[in-house]
Design a protein around this nucleic acid. Sequence first.
DNA 1: CGCTGGAACTAAACCGAGTAAGCGAGCCAG
DNA 2: CTGGCTCGCTTACTCGGTTTAGTTCCAGCG
Lengths: 338, 338
Amino acid sequence: MGRQATMSDIARRAGVSRVAVSYAINGRPGVSDAVRERILRIAAELGFLPSVPAQALHGAAAHAIGLAVSRPSPGLSVETFHRRLISGIQAELAGRGFGLVLQFVTGHDDELDVYRRWHGERRVDGVIVSDLTLDDPRPRALASMGLPAVILGEPSGPGGLTHLWSDPAAGADLVAGHLAALGHRRVARVCGPAGLLPAARRAGLFAAACERAGMACTLIPTDRTGEAGAQVTRRVLSSTPRPTAIVYDNDVMAVAGLSVAGEMGLAVPGELSLVAGDDFPLCQAVRPALTVLSRDVDALGGQAVRLLFELLDGGEPRHVPAPAAQLVTRGSTGSAPR
Amino acid sequence: MGRQATMSDIARRAGVSRVAVSYAINGRPGVSDAVRERILRIAAELGFLPSVPAQALHGAAAHAIGLAVSRPSPGLSVETFHRRLISGIQAELAGRGFGLVLQFVTGHDDELDVYRRWHGERRVDGVIVSDLTLDDPRPRALASMGLPAVILGEPSGPGGLTHLWSDPAAGADLVAGHLAALGHRRVARVCGPAGLLPAARRAGLFAAACERAGMACTLIPTDRTGEAGAQVTRRVLSSTPRPTAIVYDNDVMAVAGLSVAGEMGLAVPGELSLVAGDDFPLCQAVRPALTVLSRDVDALGGQAVRLLFELLDGGEPRHVPAPAAQLVTRGSTGSAPR
DNA sequence: CGCTGGAACTAAACCGAGTAAGCGAGCCAG
DNA sequence: CTGGCTCGCTTACTCGGTTTAGTTCCAGCG
């Protein structure tokens, strides 16, 4: 009710100056224990909380970090990825009293405008950037803007920003190795858009891993939607010779692929093995449950936040490897048909 | 580069006082057109943006609204629901220069703490509340806190807050009518947790709608996870007499159910019809695509924001009906087996 | 010629905090 | 007994913008 209590209110009630209240509440020396205690009691009574805008006025701390999410990138996986990323970010943020400001954007230009606005309006202290593309303008722009940022993705140019990314080679080897060990010799890889840096790298590395494992590999780029997953799967399964395993870049395409396989009367994993590129609840809900290459996205978000705080505390930007992806074997992969 | 330009910087460069700059930038009378133009030109050159914290200091406008999302509520549908809600909120917010502050919470108490903090710290101007439960303490608490709020859900107590909700009866009738017209006589409804207000209401109304349509209906409460969807489906399909149609409260359970039906050798829609409770990309990705009861969640989010702005502009709280859900017929429903 | 009025601008106060500097009291040492 | 030191608290200034109250200048008008 009424308005929020301010330090002046507390000072008046306690019969001291406003500054004494500031010292008491921030736990700095300058007030006696007796007065400090009285002030804290009154503050608690009044439900006092310091005004973030007022604090942000003098220092630069807005006590918030920003995350811009590319809106039109289709495919459930991306959504789920971001949701888990946000979840991980939150967990780390909560302890520090920081807030998360979220904004959907439609492209890099739009996103940079958002960063400029956030920074200009002192709304956020730093940002976390995901979905790196080839020749991405964002790192450079952020650096010249002076807005602290943690980039989720491999550093390409020079740019002195903090990057956090995991080596996709390890994951590619895991999947290729698993399939090769099961006796597969012909596999298809349903990839993400060729323009997205991580998707392109994953595709290339998987092809290389297949070669090393002695398997033939077909790469098919898609827009990562379920529709695309279904279409591509139908086409691939109609080709001759038919691959005995398909690896999908995300979960929604894999689910669509599984449905198509069922429709075409192919037993999974008896006649066809499937691997999904990310582990989300959906992958365990379908029958058979999908073998997945799983990243701990929550942990990634948390680590990104910790790196951002490092920057905010005056640390130098650095490049950090993220934990590697792990293969979770479920019912959708089995021995290759003979 | 450097720090952000302030009004003082502009004033110095333009050779006028800070106040003149304020007038010029806010389009208020008090400066000549010549000076105004010069000030605006310099402001643009310097990339000036007013500091939100500084503005928030005098009025109450933080230029942000808050959304707390219940974190542990399981089930992909809820996640997707929130994602689309956020998307709709964003679209409406973007035009007004408002930001969205997001926070995951673990329960009502936690959520109320978050609201208290947001409000106390002047971080947000209002909030949007979803996932109403029976005897929900949040509306009352928000009202007594004086924090403007739009509640997505049916008003239960008195409380003078704005509520936005759609009549679930219409949707229940649509689904029941559709199935009855196809000749179904025995249906199962896989529901959400009994404690969630909308889930409970939907369940009750669907049972009533079935009765009116002359169908027998079994209600089964679940926690909405894919696992639960699979389990319940297996149990239901093993019972005698077997229902000829199953209606799920969300998408992930429906997908799990579809997989189980395939596993058990039941043709969809030949021997069994399935309906999902929400329309998300996933429902179109699987084969056959799922018939769904679709709400325009994006529009809902947008409308919630508009109602919140009404409140912020001094409007009175009111109760508003949301657009009714629509039935989208796809491949998973067909004539009942004879 | 002087009075009124409005346009154009400025000085000063304010919002709610943080920080630096100042000042009186009490204590200790010389 | 007094100089100097610390403790405890206050006054004064800052942040960046808004608002209120003037002030100056000039035109119009009686």
